[in-house]
């Protein structure tokens, strides 16, 4: 088991593993995600209250779930960076941050557009959307700080500190925004599924969520490979890889 962690310290090992994993992640992700989306768009029954606009849920919820999960994954990787100084952990943080930011933006956009037919307004300062907006800025901060520091090691550790400070604040932010929202919104509108969603609705949703996780895995592998190539460009194994006849 410890061998696994030792191997994980090697960028070359990860590069090879990623190359082999990526096709599986991509095709299983596409299959699951498209199955969920198509089922949800065309085959799931319309909602009793919201009619057909609820179908946005099949991309809103996966985006929102992933946006939050990716930040938590980054926080775990940040801990690894600070405690064990593992390079790959920082590679993950740098690679995943822009993806997380895009996912957060998509969650915000789909959430806002969903709000228009539901509440009659394009933007609403409800607890969930506001928390997502703050999360977007947590991502932007990590990305901006990472690119502002030129030294690789310092950049890794500084971003790690920032991400950890952010993750500690996330429950506080969520709680505060919920409390703030109850002050200002007399009617609490719940945007997502009621607990008793018929299987016709939550199964495609689950497929879409799982599919998007797999697709994220694929994209993270891809972006981590790029970052590894940049960092390890002078090593022998990379030079073998980029030779004509090599198989990058």
């Amino acid at each position: 088991m410890w061998q696994f962690f030792h191997k994980l310290g090697s960028p070359k090992w990860f590069y090879d593993i990623a190359s082999r994993l990526m096709p599986w992640l991509l095709w299983s992700g596409v299959a699951l995600f498209m199955a969920g989306v198509i089922w949800g768009l065309a085959f799931a029954p319309p909602d009793y209250l919201q009619g057909n606009s609820y179908r946005i849920i099949f991309i809103h919820v996966p985006s929102a779930f992933l946006a939050q999960s990716v930040y938590i994954m980054m926080a775990v990787a940040a801990t690894v960076t600070l405690v064990w100084r593992m390079k790959l952990a920082d590679v993950f943080v740098k690679s995943a941050a822009p993806v997380g930011a895009v996912l957060t933006f998509l969650a915000l956009f789909t959430g806002a557009v969903w709000g228009k037919p539901t509440w009659g307004t394009w933007w609403i300062w409800d607890a969930r959307l506001t928390s997502m907006l703050i999360l977007l800025f947590l991502y932007f901060g990590a990305i901006a700080l990472g690119s502002a520091i030129s030294d690789e090691k310092s950049s890794a550790r500084a971003v790690a500190v920032l991400v950890l400070v952010g993750v500690v604040n996330i429950p506080i932010i969520k709680y505060s925004v919920e409390w703030w929202n109850t002050l200002h919104q007399p009617a609490t509108f719940k945007l997502t599924e009621k607990p008793s969603m018929p299987a016709d609705m939550w199964v495609p949703l689950l497929l879409a969520v799982l599919g998007l996780y797999l697709l994220f895995g694929w994209l993270a592998c891809l972006r981590m490979q790029t970052e590894i190539l940049v960092r390890e460009g002078r090593t022998r194994w990379v030079r073998e890889l980029v030779k004509p006849g090599g198989n990058p």
């Binding site: 800025f137 932007f140 604040n169 703030w180």
Partner: peptide
């Protein structure tokens, strides 16, 4: 600017309360 971008999200709970 970087400081503001990083710190303002963390200030929000204090502001709200």
């Amino acid at each position: 600017v970087l400081l503001s971008l990083m710190i303002i999200p963390l200030y929000i709970p204090v502001l709200i309360f």
